[in-house]
Simulated assay, not measured.
Amino acid sequence: MWPWEHAIVGYLAYSLFCHLVFRRSPTGLEAFAAVFASVLPDIIDKPLAWEYGVFQTGYALGHSIFFAVPLSIAVGVLAHWAGRGSAGVAFGLGYLLHLPSDVLDGYVREGQAHPELMLWPLETVTEHDHGQGFTDQFWLLFTRYQQDLLAGDLSTYMWIQLGLAGFVGLLWLYDGAPVLREPLYWVGHRLRGLLSGRTTRDDRTR
């Protein structure tokens, strides 16, 4: 599954969880935690495999359930200790959803499920040498996706992906554009403070 697809799934899952359980929209920190965690397995494994050759494939430590579960628990405990328990939940949900999403994606695309993607080091996927560094490989995949999109040569699966991306974009706006709204709110608050202070000084000089 593409990194941006993982980000879409991560945000969608946590936003729905937030509305169902907390009866509110995600905060900026929660949204960031969910999206960041949803792509973190690829951030860990892909460069180490494609760029540095630490792993034979891009599905290793970061994609292993034996690493993902302890990491999610540790982050959750630390977040709870820091008074940010909901952000810890967002991180765990985003990270843990990445693993089965890759398995499901393989089944949808190829008709075969590969649960071994989640079982490193007990099981590993077939060795696949990309022959390129992480950055080159990423842009190759992105360019291929972009070319298919511009040419209108889209499969049913890709149309579903685009529809899901559009829906999540609207959901993000409905949620109040978390992550973006916080700096905008801060800037607006500062501007109001400056204008208020200037108005007060002008009144005093009259």
Rank of each mutant, 00 (worst) to 15 (best):
W2T: 04
L48I: 05
V75T: 09
R204F: 10
W186K: 13
R84V: 09
P70S: 03
R109D: 08
V103N: 04
E110D: 14
F134K: 12
G111T: 05
T126I: 14
S155H: 08
A34M: 03
L141K: 13
D175G: 05
M118A: 12
R190S: 01
E182S: 00
R190D: 01
L164S: 07
G92F: 02
T143A: 13
A82D: 05
D105E: 13
E5D: 09
D42A: 06
S155C: 04
G163L: 12
V75H: 06
M1H: 08
I8P: 00
F66I: 14
L141W: 10
L117G: 04
A74F: 12
G152Q: 09
P3Q: 00
H114G: 03
G83T: 11
A113M: 11
F91H: 06
Y185G: 03
A74C: 12
A7F: 07
Y52V: 11
V39A: 09
E116F: 04
G85Y: 07
S15N: 01
W2Y: 09
L40M: 15
L99Q: 12
L119C: 07
I73F: 14
L93R: 03
A90D: 01
G111H: 02
A34N: 02
V168L: 06
D105Q: 14
F22V: 14
T126W: 05
L164Q: 03
S15D: 01
I65V: 15
S196A: 11
A87N: 04
V125M: 13
W159K: 13
P26W: 01
D148P: 02
D42Y: 07
L99W: 07
G106E: 07
L93P: 00
L122P: 01
E127W: 08
T135M: 15
L140T: 15
F32W: 03
H19M: 14
Y11S: 02
Q137P: 09
W2M: 07
Y59H: 15
L93M: 11
P121H: 09
P183I: 12
G152W: 04
V69D: 06
I43H: 00
A165D: 01
E30T: 04
D203H: 10
S38H: 05
P121D: 02
P3S: 04
L16R: 08
I73Y: 13
H189F: 06
R23W: 04
L119Q: 08
R84Q: 14
W139L: 15
L71D: 01
V77A: 10
L164D: 00
A33L: 02
G53A: 11
L61S: 05
V168K: 06
A90E: 02
L164E: 00
L97E: 00
L29F: 05
H114T: 13
L61H: 06
F22Y: 15
Y107T: 13
W139T: 15
S196K: 08
A151C: 07
P70T: 07
L12R: 06
D105H: 15
V21I: 14
F36I: 12
K46I: 05
